[in-house]
Structure formats: structure tokens, C-alpha cells
């Protein structure tokens, strides 16, 4: 039983094919990494899955139902919720109210939604900013807000688009812990990330895109040895570093 199935999805912008017959599946309870060079089509794929874009061809299934062509709010209501790489705070609303909007997806009740919002704000270390307008947050805070708001919806599948980009290495460690906690709650994750040190250790499976085409899919171990992935994205030096780290951890 898969939670998400992307079947031969194609997305064209005029002559540009941003996603070219991409297929993969996400099993419930797992973390799947989606990687690839800039412009590979990762964000476009998120936009297709979440219903922001109408796809040019292919089909998408989520939790046993076909979601191809559904409006994005329906897909979110089914439990597939995403964050935005280019952050989109609801600027004039407070950080708390931003997260509250997410929390209301779990029910209209005020008390419960407030409790959920408070918890998600705490998990994402935003408590000190809770009453500030979201537009005033520093960029790291806005990234955490994206995560808190999506998390508050109580999703089955959480799709994170570079939530760690631009964070300091301490912040990245913090974010990785948050992601671990989220997985422990039973939430499935699909994560776009350029920071390999962050995604490789936590992913159960990695899907690699290049020029809109899926060039590899498999456990992180195999991906870092894959010739095509090394030449298209990781680079020889970087791949050796990841391999060396793997050897170290084996011996330890």
C-alpha cells in the first residue's frame, strides 16, 4: 500500500518540459528525499502534486484516491500539505494566527485549534515570535513558520521544499531533529533538499531528478554510488566525502 503515487507525470511550460514522465511512490511512514540540480523540476513537481499546477499528462494518486486535477484545497484536506521554497507568510497576520489557519484544517473548534497551533509553534521554536506579524520574521523564522503552519494541518504527507536552505549549521541540526519528531508522529515526509548531509542520513529512499527526468531512485546508500547521479549532481569529490562518511559509520 502506497500513500502517494506519481505516475508518468509531465509538466510543460510552453516548449520547456519541467517534469518529463516522472514516476515514483512514497510508502506510508517513510521519508523520501527528492534531490537534483537547480532547475531540475523539484518545485514544479511539488506544485503538480499539491494541485497548484494543472499537469500536462500523467496521474497522481494519494491515499487510495486519484487527485489528478483536484483543486489544491481539496488535496490539502485529504492530507497532503506542502511548504513553499519561496516563503509565503501571511504577512499582516501574527505568527500565531498563521499557524492557527493551518490548525483549523483539523476542525473548526477554537480551543483545539489554538492548542494545536501552540504546540506546532513550540516544536518549530517560534514561541518568542508568536505575537509578531509574520512579515517581520527573519528568514530563518519564516522557513520555520512554513513548517509549523503545514504541520498544524495534521497532514498524512508533509512535503517540504528546502526548509533548511539558508539556515546555519546549528539551525540545520535543529531542523533535522524536528523532522525526526514529525516522522515519529507517523507523518510521511517528502523532502526537497540541497543539503546532502541533512537529507541522506534521514531518508529511506531518494529520488533524483535532472532536467525534468527521474535519473535514479533508491536507498541513499545506492544513490551516492550511482554514476549518473554523481556526474549530474553530487560531483565526484562530494560523493567520495559521503562514501567516506558511510565507511566511518560502518567501522564505528
Amino acid at each position: 500500500m502506497t500513500l502517494l503515487e506519481v505516475r508518468e507525470v509531465t509538466k510543460k511550460f510552453g516548449a520547456l518540459v519541467a517534469n518529463d514522465k516522472v514516476s515514483f511512490t512514497v510508502d506510508p511512514g517513510t521519508i523520501v528525499g527528492l534531490i537534483g540540480p537547480n532547475g531540475a523540476g523539484k518545485t514544479t513537481l511539488f506544485n503538480c502534486i499539491s494541485g497548484l499546477y494543472a499537469i500536462s499528462a500523467g496521474r497522481i494518486f494519494f491515499d487510495g484516491t486519484e487527485i489528478t486535477g483536484l483543486p489544491s484545497f481539496r488535496i490539502a484536506r485529504l492530507g497532503a500539505v506542502r511548504t513553499f521554497q519561496v516563503v509565503r507568510p501571511l504577512k499582516e497576520m501574527t505568527v500565531f494566527d498563521n499557524v492557527l489557519v493551518g490548525a483549523f484544517l483539523q476542525g473548526a473548534g477554537n480551543a483545539r485549534a489554538r492548542a494545536t497551533a501552540e504546540e506546532c509553534i513550540r516544536i518549530c521554536n517560534l514561541t518568542e515570535y508568536a505575537d509578531k506579524p509574520a512579515g517581520d520574521l527573519p528568514i530563518g523564522g519564516k522557513k520555520r513558520l512554513e513548517l509549523a503552519r503545514a504541520l498544524a494541518t495534521g497532514p498524512k504527507l508533509l512535503m517540504l521544499d528546502e526548509v533548511m536552505a539558508g539556515l546555519t549549521s546549528t539551525e540545520v541540526k535543529g531542523a533535522m531533529e524536528v523532522i525526526h519528531d514529525i516522522r515519529r508522529k507517523g507523518i510521511t515526509l517528502l523532502i526537497v533538499e540541497h543539503i546532502m548531509e541533512a537529507i541522506m542520513p534521514i531518508a529511506d529512499k531518494v529520488v533524483v531528478l535532472d532536467g525534468g527526468i527521474k535519473i535514479a531512485e533508491g536507498p541513499p546508500d545506492r544513490i551516492i554510488d550511482d554514476e549518473r547521479v554523481i556526474s549530474a549532481y553530487l560531483g565526484t569529490k562530494f560523493s567520495r566525502r559521503l562514501q567516506a562518511r558511510r565507511e566511518e559509520s560502518k567501522h564505528a
Binding site: 484545497f73 506542502r82 513553499f84 484544517l105 503552519r149
Partner: peptide, 11 residues
């Protein structure tokens, strides 16, 4: 504040 953002949260 952001129609697409709101929709992404189920609105």
C-alpha cells in the same frame, strides 16, 4: 494575505 497559500492549507 495570500490566496494560494490559504488554499495550500485547505481553505
Amino acid at each position: 494575505e495570500g490566496q494560494e497559500t490559504a488554499e495550500s492549507l485547505g481553505v
